[in-house]
Design a protein around this nucleic acid. Sequence first.
DNA 1: GTGAAAGCGCTAACAG
DNA 2: CTGTTAGCGCTTTCAC
Lengths: 336, 336
Amino acid sequence: MPIERRTKVTLKDLAHLCGVSLGTIDRAINDKPGVSKKTREMILRIAEEHGYRPNVIAQSLQSGKTFEIGLIVHDLNNRFFSLLVDSIQQTAWEHHYYIQLAVSLRDTTREKEIIEHMLQRNVDGILLFPTNVGETFYEYLVNLGIPVTLMANRVKGPPGSRPLPFIGLDNTTVVKQAVEQIIAQGYEVVNFVAPYFNTTNSHNYYEIDKRYQAFLSVVEVHTVEHHIFSCQQYRSEIARLSFDKRTAFFCVSDIFALELLSLFTEMGLAIPDDVGVMGFDNIDVLKYVRPSLSTINYPVSELGKQGFELLHSTISGERVNPKQMLEAQIIWRDSI
Amino acid sequence: MPIERRTKVTLKDLAHLCGVSLGTIDRAINDKPGVSKKTREMILRIAEEHGYRPNVIAQSLQSGKTFEIGLIVHDLNNRFFSLLVDSIQQTAWEHHYYIQLAVSLRDTTREKEIIEHMLQRNVDGILLFPTNVGETFYEYLVNLGIPVTLMANRVKGPPGSRPLPFIGLDNTTVVKQAVEQIIAQGYEVVNFVAPYFNTTNSHNYYEIDKRYQAFLSVVEVHTVEHHIFSCQQYRSEIARLSFDKRTAFFCVSDIFALELLSLFTEMGLAIPDDVGVMGFDNIDVLKYVRPSLSTINYPVSELGKQGFELLHSTISGERVNPKQMLEAQIIWRDSI
DNA sequence: GTGAAAGCGCTAACAG
DNA sequence: CTGTTAGCGCTTTCAC
């Protein structure tokens, strides 16, 4: 570590110090041909002595590239997102990219504000777990001037338009399979629990909707009794049910499933005999919870890794497959 | 939203478009005095129409400020850190600052690499949950040329040197209090569980060491039998104990306490009669765990908020109190 | 091999 | 009120 740091030394300073011109300094520092071995060594030595650090800001202004990408997720309270950010940050580091992180809090206005800010900061691309929906938003993203890659939730354009690069989970297959098997276990009622899932079309519920459609298609084929719990007070609503029939709850996220698990334990219901609970995500804390929660594993690290790599390819101008799909696995444990 | 985005429009472009000079455009856009109302309105309208966005990179090069701060934490797997990052990101957003996030993975070399990278990217300051220790590192941080604020772990300089701004927890008080009360409950053996806590001095264990010293001071006064478990195989080591005396385990983090809880349940020990467990941090998943874990609440949001604000004050050149302390609270539940 | 100069987009200082 | 110019630190082009 060089000692003197207080004053930043620039290429120009080095030029003075070495008694050569700016151009020569540049060639030496950046390993370009056209400098004698002697001068190059001298320059590198003096640069080292003075603790020279290139100014990335100036490089960016010149090159138009920042090697930063904007990352926008809903929040960091949900374990799912922190693991996602972790994975993206790791992958980005390996590619010598930096992350600018912001959280949208599922607020459509805030999401747009964040995008505007990131644009001004000249990020090379944006990795987005979207909250907004609709064709206007699609047009907006397409015309940003920098690549955008979507994770988990899609944003669709008008029919026939080129889709935005997207990486997500194949929800349909796994949900159908899970619901089939739940029904096969003899549950008389199968419910779908998706708080915050509203139908006003103001927010992006692409992924949850996929799951709901898959759920519906199965329960309707089997003509099984089913209900949806989509309001925030799902816990108290469910607490008021009679439970005279054997009932299963398919939850779109482990955090809701855990709430139900503790509710049913309090109510003295037998799990999984009176009532069954299935989660989604397979968050890591499940290992401490009893009865152990059956769930669907979301390959969140893969989502982050491949999401970054997809964006990275687009930034590098490669032609990419605009739609990548990840597979989930059902994990049967004791709760259903 | 302006429609045309593909080509970035600059102040110079606007100057041409409006038929005025660069200087006038600048004054109009940045709300400076010295433009007639008429021209200003015209300029703002045209800027809006063409979707002008200031180039923050160019502004940074000019001003030397980026309004970005570097944030370095150990990892994001630990719930503690994701909540911390969340809180910092929120606070930064309110102050119109952006976060550059990187994780050190508790690797001393990587931590220094990250700092070097952030320096090159001209962050205005660094918020650091440090991994390195020692006076050399202290000197390094002091001479970075930008403000650094430390969270939780201190980095001490030579005697008499000006301490780096720091925000942390008052570990001593709360740990002493907790251990006192554990002993008062009649435990015959009180153990300290701190995996990864080694004494080679290569890593920064400032905070854990504080806790250990506080622990020691109390058990020694009461001459209670005590042991420390500091290796990574703490779980199997503890599994081999005989448990013929009533034993308490004071863990430096909830995640270790949860491991012990499930171990003791497997072993058929009665909690808290045969064996007691105390955690640290009060991570939010505890609400789903039975028996409920007694723990110490770490005000992590406060740590993030005040950490950012401390750094922000330093960046703004305010004189600040270099040492801020947060208070923890003991939360007694069923495990001890 | 090396030096000089222009320019990335913006701000600030100085003229008019 | 408005225009011109220099310069932030770097890269690139073109002379020598």
